[in-house]
C-alpha cells in the first residue's frame, strides 16, 4: 500500500496529527458523562482511527482502536439513559490512557511494544464484554428485590465479577419502587415471597410507573404452575434459587436486555 519510505513518513505525520485530534474530540465527548455523551461520534472517531492505523501499519493502534470502536457502538446501540456509569467510565478511562500513550508514542509510532499494563487490561475488559454474545456485553444496572438478606448476599457473591455490573438491592416494596425509579435498572430480579405484597404485584407496579426493565423471577419454587404465572405476568425469565454464577450468566444471556 505504501510505496516508498518517503511516502510513509509523510503519511505518518498526517496520520499522527489527525489521530491526536480524533482522540481529543472523543475524549471531550466522553467527559460529558453517560447522559450527554454522543457514543455515535465516539464510535466514528475510533472507526476512522482504526482504518487510518491500518493504512499506515501501526498495528498496536489498529487493534486498540478497533476494540474501542466496537465498544462505543455497543453503548450507542443500548440507547440513551441505559448506559451505566460503570460502563461509561470503563470506556472513558481507556480512551484517556490511550490518548496519553499516543502523545508519547507518536514520536516512534511504528515501534512494536509489548501489550499489557493498565491499558492492556482495560482493553481486555472491553474485549471480553464484546465477546459475550447478547448477554452482559455491557455493564448492566441490576436491581435485586428480596426480603432475605442472605439471598441478596448470595446473589452479590455470585454476580460475575469484572464486567462492571452495578447491583442495587431492595428489601421491601417501597425501597424497590424507589430504586426502580432512581437507577432505571436494565434487569430486576424479583423474589416471589415478599412480606408486603408478592413479587408479581410489585413488578406490576414498576411497569405501571414506566419501568422498562427485564423482569426475572427469583424463586426456589419452580413448579410449572409458578412458571406459568410468572410468564403470564410478563416476566422474561426465572432464576432458580440457590443462585450460582452459571445460573446468573445464563439468565442474563437469555433475557437480552
Amino acid at each position: 500500500m505504501v510505496d516508498t519510505p518517503m511516502d510513509q513518513t509523510a503519511l505518518l505525520q498526517v496520520f499522527c496529527a489527525e489521530a491526536r485530534d480524533r482522540l481529543q474530540r472523543a475524549l471531550a465527548c466522553l467527559e460529558k458523562g453517560p447522559d450527554h455523551c454522543d457514543y455515535d461520534l465516539v464510535h466514528q472517531e475510533f472507526d476512522s482511527l482504526h482504518g487510518g492505523a491500518r493504512a499506515v501499519d501501526i498495528d498496536w493502534l489498529e487493534r486498540d482502536a478497533r476494540v474501542i470502536a466496537g465498544y462505543a457502538r455497543f453503548l450507542r446501540n443500548l440507547g440513551p439513559h441505559h448506559v451505566t456509569s460503570a460502563a461509561h467510565n470503563l470506556l472513558l478511562e481507556t480512551v484517556r490512557i490511550l490518548e496519553e500513550q499516543c502523545r508519547c508514542r507518536m514520536e516512534a509510532p511504528t515501534v512494536r511494544v509489548a501489550p499489557g499494563g493498565r491499558l492492556g487490561s482495560l482493553l481486555e475488559s472491553l474485549e471480553s464484554a464484546l465477546r459475550t454474545p447478547a448477554g452482559p456485553a455491557v455493564p448492566l444496572t441490576i436491581l435485586v428485590v428480596d426480603d432475605s438478606a442472605t439471598s441478596r448476599l448470595l446473589f452479590r457473591a455470585h454476580m460475575p465479577a469484572g464486567e462492571g455490573h452495578a447491583v442495587f438491592e431492595a428489601q421491601d416494596r417501597n425501597e424497590a419502587m424507589r430504586l426502580a425509579e432512581e437507577v432505571n435498572p436494565h434487569v430486576v430480579f424479583m423474589d416471589y415471597n415478599m412480606p408486603d405484597e408478592d413479587g408479581v404485584r410489585i413488578a406490576g407496579r414498576m411497569r405501571a410507573m414506566g419501568c422498562r426493565a427485564a423482569l426475572v423471577l427469583l424463586t426456589a419454587n419452580v413448579q410449572q404452575a409458578v412458571l406459568d404465572d410468572a410468564h403470564a405476568a410478563g416476566f422474561a425469565g426465572v432464576l432458580e434459587k440457590p443462585v450460582n454464577r452459571e445460573k446468573i450468566i445464563s439468565v442474563l444471556r437469555s433475557i437480552k436486555p
Binding site: 432475605s148 438478606a149 439471598s151 426456589a220 434459587k241
Partner: peptide, 14 residues
Amino acid sequence: QDATVELANIGISR
C-alpha cells in the same frame, strides 16, 4: 435466622 429460613425455603420448594 434469615439464612436458615432461606435455606429451608429453597429445600422445601424443591
